[in-house]
């Protein structure tokens, strides 16, 4: 896995390249927590920029404006409830790419501690599914 991401590096300048916003559901289950892990790792790999999904539902102006400024929106949901995708669409955004971890072979349960091997496997499947 790539190195640590400092918070101040979390703000991305649009001069660099197209901005791909990554919106993880980060829900209260193993698949939900894994979406956050996936978004963090994709950010570290330079394949997108983790954004604050909860701020979309919370109608937070800075986060909504940041989302308007993205070139592509990717929703990463843990399960078929699709909370991330639905939150974005409810706020009026079009989701360009969407992935659901439970449909990639990860069974949903209440465990919150993530397994590193499983995380690596899911990462590979997500990258393949999203073609990134």
């Amino acid at each position: 896995m790539a190195g640590e991401v400092k918070m101040t590096e979390g703000v991305k300048c649009t001069c660099e390249a197209a901005i791909v916003g990554l919106y993880a559901c980060a829900g209260g289950s193993n698949v939900g927590q894994m979406t956050n892990k996936v978004a963090v790792e994709l950010t570290k790999k330079g394949k997108g920029k983790i954004m604050c999904t909860v701020g979309i539902g919370g109608d937070v102006p800075g986060i909504l404006k940041s989302t308007e400024g993205t070139d592509e929106i990717i929703a990463i949901d843990g399960c078929a409830l699709m909370c991330a995708k639905r939150s974005l669409e409810r706020a009026g955004f079009t989701v360009d790419k969407h992935v659901i971890l439970s449909e990639l072979g990860m069974k949903k349960n209440k465990e919150l501690d993530l397994n590193e091997n499983e995380a690596n496997e899911i990462m590979a499947k997500v990258e393949e599914a999203l073609k990134i």
Binding site: M7, T8, G10, V11, K12, C13, T14, I19, K49, M51, C52, G55, V60, P61, G62, I63, K65, S66, G69, T70
Partner: peptide, 9 residues
């Protein structure tokens, strides 16, 4: 970040 801004300018 304090403003919730994640991309600039």
């Amino acid at each position: 970040l304090d403003y919730g801004v994640m991309i600039t300018p």
